[in-house]
Design a protein around this nucleic acid. Sequence first.
DNA 1: TGTACATCAGTGAACGCGCGTTCACTGATGTAC
DNA 2: TGTACATCAGTGAACGCGCGTTCACTGATGTAC
Lengths: 209, 209
Amino acid sequence: VTSVSAPPRRRARSPRGKGDLLREEILAAAERILIDSNDQSAVSIRAIASAVGVTPPSIYLHFADRTELLFAVCERQAALLHEAMANSAAGVDDPLERMRLRGLAYLHWGLQNPEHYRILMMSRPDCTPDRFVDERLADTAGLLPVIQDLVAAGAEEAVEVSKLLWMMMHGMVSLLISKPDFPFEPAEQIYDRLFEVARRGLNPPVDDA
Amino acid sequence: VTSVSAPPRRRARSPRGKGDLLREEILAAAERILIDSNDQSAVSIRAIASAVGVTPPSIYLHFADRTELLFAVCERQAALLHEAMANSAAGVDDPLERMRLRGLAYLHWGLQNPEHYRILMMSRPDCTPDRFVDERLADTAGLLPVIQDLVAAGAEEAVEVSKLLWMMMHGMVSLLISKPDFPFEPAEQIYDRLFEVARRGLNPPVDDA
DNA sequence: TGTACATCAGTGAACGCGCGTTCACTGATGTAC
DNA sequence: TGTACATCAGTGAACGCGCGTTCACTGATGTAC
């Protein structure tokens, strides 16, 4: 009698040249666990191995250690975030509206992937790939040209402003994630206000003192 | 020969009615470990016990479990944060300047106590006392009256604005903590800009459309 | 003044847990001769 | 066409670790009689 009620089913071994298939399955399982548990620490080598239907040491055939595995998950998700933002503004020409849409996409992505957001943006520096510390991050919104128009200033200032915007967005997203029971207004409403504050606050004063 | 090279020196037993002394020592040790290690997970029952010079079970004489202990540390620090903000604006009458000073104190406290800030503001909801989820938090800056003047609006809107300000501050502080290697401008400079953006952005538009 | 006793502030040893990682191995599959 | 062999994709068992927590205990100190 073959075991009928054995949930930890065993994964079939990959054919000869296709060892890399397991790598993909590992990453997929890690992401699923991360999403389901909403807890980075639940994404253990053993949990992943068991989800994939494989023994723990097999993981080491494809990743040097747990850190590298988590980093790989991060990179994937970061790419998805950038993609989501790009898509949201596709075909829109008005720079201000592009900015609004990209920010909105950032917000939605963060709220829908809280634990990914947490790893990417909120975790201790040593738990995050170094590559996530580059200027690109602040330009996460891809805003530089837009901002340049907005503040009517040089490229240098545009970079500074993009960091300010990032901070504002991040403050909103991360608080919504960390304090889900706090009586915040609906996310979209907050975003509208925040966007207005940024737009008005960054514009040169109307009365040029 | 009494042991000479025994670093894990033993704490003298408290006199009869003074069992609570240990409680204070435990909290102090927990805080010291938290600050030194900059890592919440390093604050283990065993590490604390060893730092105090006592056995692990003794901790349970004063705290039901590890969570409660960490919560106690949180509360202490939250009180210090509020105190720091209150002090910074003491004796200052101009509402806008009060607001600026309190925000600045918030910033400094966060940067000087990154791991405390992390626990209080950035950790998963279930790792934080429920009491940290109340309206008081958003008014962390004690700003409500000030804001009311600023936006020249009702109390309800003032509360909403205080949450916006909190988000902006939090975005700044938490990114500076999480991404220490990111090429941010100096904190004071960022704060000045952010404050200006908020002040201008929240003021009713000069040209009343 | 002397002794039994309750109380209080701890201790010592052990529990079971899940974790990352290592090491020697296995067994199917393709390739070379 | 048949057989030896290298390669590849894994397995099984174990390592040592630090953790939170529990349980039965100890031994000094104050109090009651």
